[in-house]
Design a protein around this nucleic acid. Structure first.
Lengths: 340, 340
DNA sequence: GTGAAAGCGCTAACAC
DNA sequence: GTGTTAGCGCTTTCAC
């Protein structure tokens, strides 16, 4: 029994067409009439039926999202916050395309069509997780967060992972560290791969070499960081600095260091990635690379909106800059005599 | 240009009504006709337009969800996994009711109505976060996860938080611990309150008393657990056992204990809550109370579905049992002489 | 500046 | 067992 457009029309003593025009910002509506209609809309708590609007061939104002249920990394919540802002700003709603759909029991694109989804956000998934070819080929606009994808109506967004880690390595090199190790992200993940590449390049640029054992394969988690650090510290010649693929794993690494009786940053410099809340609160406060997670979410939606409306965009590939955040977990390397 | 019901009707040489009936499982359709229609539906990739269906007064098969963007606790991902399963099982889609909506800039109930949302899930929020009265009064079915709410079409679900903690205290008491402390959840949160109540009662039941400083106000996070434990260990008479409101905070507490040179479980017994992945992987493995997070999500959707369809339910208030998981973080209290 | 009417894709009476 | 038709709430020509 929600009030419909006819109720408003009746109350205002005009036709439904006029109400519709007033509602949709047509300028051919008499100011007084519009005023009256708008007042009634407020008073009677009218809200247009989205299904009817979408049926009549108009926009559905619905976006779909595919995401992992493994959202426990703080990264996801922050990105979602940005998505949320943009959704509101651009008037979209978000429909969660059940994880189950991803299992390909039936076509996800058909599901989108059936729901009149105008565009799709892909988030927290890796290429290996599912077959995206149907989505790409369907012509349905889509934006991939932290995944490399391209196509006619396809966009992608991520931070400049490679540059970020190169920057981190350079900072460490400037602190005279020569034995620098790397705690990786999930192997095969887009951002994990690029961060590794950044490490490789950074080391090379600074004339530094490293044994293969200095690359600790991990997974972005605290537990992973902890285990990796333990392995690194068990090496005959352990590193004096470590670059981690997430703040969370950096915290794990710091725990492992503490357990071995090492002091951060005096005995070991640690750098993280993300700049989540924990980076600020941990002791010593974590030096890290800040990526603007809210911006990733916000701009993903903005790009998708542009793609949907066919707006000319400068690039369908957005790489956001990162920011070096210097806190207390890095210090100059001690020389052989143990002096800083 | 997706194919519509008329295309199918034409191809099958029948009327749209027959197609509709075949699709909706009416038994009055000739088996051969139905067969043919279904084949065509597959072949032509037909999928009914959800907007049209919902417009014609039928079900929209859409649920809404309000949640925090602060989903970094592993609890949320697991619950979402259960929700996801149930959504698929019962054929619903989930629309994410933007966080921004919660800021009450305009009526969330109107938003639901406009989107033909049939029911609402509330998740990861506390009573203080927003005014739920409009929702309660609206007659829109809703299920609250971990929040106490009631009303005509209102359900709620949570674990038996109180009993779970009482059980934990009893176990510790049976290990001869007498100095038992409590690291709380977020004060004012539904589950936090009940867990505290469970602690209070458990201590009383076991004839144990505790100074007020043994209640460490915390927030479910690792950092919170760490800080709380540091405070507890700084006490003139520190506890020999601690009950934590989450596994994550228990891990933080264990870290703090290790830093003070204490060994878990020999010097300090620790119990967690949730049984997340980390509880298994941390060393020593965490003794904890397992709550079935997937079941919470799954049954929340099932209950909401029942409420929507007006099905008779045994109770609109579902309290799930928890399970004591004994691992390696608890040991008998040492007596005054230091023997176990 | 406003209204009448068609039609978006579908379901459900009702007729046959 | 199948077809005809009205109508869900809305936007949009096209008249006036």
């Amino acid at each position: 029994m929600p009030v419909n457009i006819r109720d408003i029309a009746k109350a205002a003593g005009v036709s439904v067409a006029t109400v519709s025009k007033a509602l949709n910002g047509y300028t051919t509506v008499n100011a007084a009439t519009r005023e009256k209609i708008m007042r009634l809309v407020e008073e009677m708590q009218y809200h247009p039926n989205a299904a009817a609007r979408s049926l009549v061939g108009q926009r559905s104002m619905t976006l779909g999202v595919f995401l992992t249920t493994g959202l426990s990394h703080p990264f996801f919540g922050s990105v979602l916050g940005g998505i949320d802002e943009a959704l509101k700003a651009r008037g979209y709603d978000l429909i969660y395309l059940a994880q189950a759909t991803i299992r390909q029991e039936y076509s996800l694109v058909r599901h989108c069509r059936s729901r009149n989804v105008e565009g799709v956000l892909v988030f927290g998934l890796q290429e290996a997780d599912m077959d995206f070819s149907e989505l790409i080929d369907s012509g349905l606009p889509a934006v991939f967060i932290d995944m490399e994808m391209s196509g006619e109506h396809i966009g992608m967004i991520s931070s400049d992972n490679e540059e970020a880690i190169r920057k981190a390595v350079r900072h460490l090199a400037e602190l005279n560290h020569r034995r620098i190790a790397f705690i990786s992200g999930i192997p095969g993940s887009y951002s994990g791969n690029l961060r590794y590449e950044g490490f490789r390049q950074g080391m090379e640029e600074n004339g530094l070499s490293y044994p293969p054992e200095y690359i600790a394969i991990s997974d972005f988690t605290r537990e992973g960081g902890y285990e990796s650090m333990k392995r690194l510290l068990a090496l005959p010649e352990p590193p004096t600095a470590v670059v981690c693929c997430s703040d969370v794993s950096a915290v794990g690494a710091m725990t492992a260091a503490a357990e071995q009786g090492l002091t951060v940053p005096d005995d070991l410099s640690v750098v993280g990635f993300d700049d989540v809340e924990a980076a600020r609160s941990v002791r010593p406060a974590l030096t890290t690379v800040r990526q603007d997670m809210e911006a990733i979410g916000f701009r993903a939606v903005a790009l998708l909106d542009d793609l949907i409306r066919g707006v000319e965009v400068p690039s369908k590939r957005i790489i956001l800059p990162t920011e070096w955040v210097s806190r207390d977990s890095c210090a100059p390397a001690k020389d052989a005599a143990g002096r800083s």
